[in-house]
Amino acid sequence: MSTTAAGPEAPGIVCAFAVSRTPPDPALLAAARGHEEGGPLRAVRAGGLYLVVQDVPAALFGEEALTERLNRPGDLERCARAHHRGVEAAAGRGPVVPLPMATLYRGDLTAVRAVTARQPVLETLLARLCDRTEWAVKVHAAEAPPESATDPGARTAPGGGGRAYLSRVSARRRDRRGAHEKALAEAEAVDAELRRYAVAATRHRPQSERLTGRRAPQLLNIAYLVDDARRADFTEALARIAADGGRRAVRVDASGPWIPYSFARWDEDPQAGPEQEVRP
């Protein structure tokens, strides 16, 4: 393991990725790339824990420079992927607590101090995340077919004129409201089913249609924390839900397994029961 500390007067910036209890695998650290512009990944001892860091150039990772870069889509994506690679490399030999992207220090000393000051909480979290992965599930309303082409009412409406038009409009509005309520109920049923196989679940803010690129609204955006021992049960439940012809009002998409980013948080009590969740 490379534990070379940057000298106190080194002008660079230290970028932190994740905290682990077990020493990270040196081969994995050496093979991982981290940020393209930075040095090799290093593991630094912080009390009884390890912090995976990388030296990065101040010219690119200083406050102004990085803010500007993160507002450029190409750089934002590269940074996000680099951060994830660093977290993955740290996770080779055991659980990790990932830090958010762009957690930056002036040197190893302050980075280590930040970790050791929070060691008890970090240790509790590491214990909680051990042998568990995160699964991201998004439930969207099913996309409605284009109205003009399929609405038989438009063609067979017996009466013309304003009244017929208005009644058509209000009928369509009723249909739409009914469809939305049905979709919401189905989405909640999907969540209830998946929770049976999860240790914890947390609801994220549903993504806007501009972000998802879909016309149908996102109803639920949930992360599940799943025990490795129950992973097969969870993925089978996902497959069952996807195959369920009875659920026509929603579309369910899932991705995983993820390093449990969504469950590495201060703001929930790691001792609390499995049903805890954070509502938006």
């Binding site: 910036i13 932190a16 994740a18 905290v19 990772f61 200083g62 406050e63 990085l66 803010t67 993160l70 934002l76 994506e77 996000a80 992927r81 951060h83 994830h84 977290v87 607590v97 990932p98 830090l99 958010p100 992207m101 762009a102 957690t103 930056l104 220090y105 002036r106 302050t110 930040a114 970790v115 929070r118 909480v121 970090l122 979290l125 991201a136 994220h204 993504q207 972000l211 998802t212 991705s255 993820w258 980013y261 969504s262 590495a264 948080r265 201060w266």
Partner: peptide, 23 residues
């Protein structure tokens, strides 16, 4: 990628860094 960004941008434990990036 949207899932990845959602996670690396504002999930994970927040340990105050020396350099503040406003995300």
């Amino acid at each position: 990628l949207a899932d990845l960004l959602e996670r690396v941008l504002d999930k994970g434990i927040v340990i105050a860094g020396d350099i503040k990036i406003d995300l």
